[in-house]
Computed example of a mutant assay.
Amino acid sequence: MDVLRPYRAMAFNNLWANHRLLSACSALSAAEWVAPRTGFFPSLRATLNHILIIDHFYVDAMEGGTLGPVAWANREPCATLPELQAAQKAMDRRLIAVVEAAAGHDGLERIVSVHRGARIQHERLDRLLLHLFQHQIHHRGQAHAMLSGSSAPPPQLDEFFSVGEAELRAGEFAALGISEARVWGEG
């Protein structure tokens, strides 16, 4: 049994969903990108930058780094959409690499040290991954709702696991350099 399969699939789903969401944002004007919107964060730019900085915080820890709260010192490190697209894609690939590296000796049970400023949290890798995936889905949902009130139609984000929708993903997967076989650990 491939215990990494669900984690690998979620990491690739994260890459794909961020790609789709950020691509949809490319239809926005610069003013719409930063326009005040209803949500936990006040704009699409702020919400999507938040996803990036929290990814940075956790992925760094999962890689053995000690970045800690410095990750969110700049709440919006990417002012433009192209900057954010490039940074998020690179971060998503780092997350995939973390998951794929879990095939090693300690696997998903490896203890990760998360530097939280005044203290260090020790958490299993599988639990941190689940937390991070939930965080990403939560805030992508907020951004998706924000897009509903803009000139750009929000993209479909929940067809990743549907076998019947493989054709939908084929072109996007090719553009991202991934395949169904790699996602599911079948080649």
Rank of each mutant, 00 (worst) to 15 (best):
M1F: 09
M1P: 09
D2H: 04
L4A: 02
R8P: 00
R8H: 01
M10L: 09
M10N: 09
M10W: 06
F12P: 00
N13E: 11
L15K: 05
W16T: 14
N18Q: 11
R20V: 11
R20L: 14
C25R: 06
A27I: 01
A27K: 08
L28S: 07
S29A: 03
A30I: 07
A30M: 00
A31N: 04
E32S: 01
W33H: 03
T38C: 10
A46D: 15
T47W: 12
I51Y: 01
L52G: 04
I54F: 14
D55S: 10
H56P: 00
H56R: 15
F57K: 12
D60E: 14
G65Y: 11
G65I: 13
L67A: 13
G68R: 11
A71F: 14
W72L: 10
N74E: 13
R75G: 13
E76I: 11
L81Y: 03
L81Q: 02
K89W: 04
R93S: 08
L95D: 01
V98W: 07
V99M: 01
E100W: 00
H105P: 02
L108G: 00
R110Q: 11
R110V: 03
R116A: 15
R116C: 08
A118Q: 04
R124G: 07
R127C: 07
R127H: 12
L129R: 04
L130R: 08
Q134L: 05
H135M: 13
Q136R: 13
Q136N: 15
I137D: 05
R140K: 15
R140V: 09
H144Y: 11
G149N: 09
G149I: 04
S150W: 00
Q156C: 14
L157Y: 13
D158N: 14
D158K: 07
A170M: 12
G171N: 10
G171E: 07
F173L: 13
E180L: 07
R182H: 02
R182M: 07
W184Q: 03
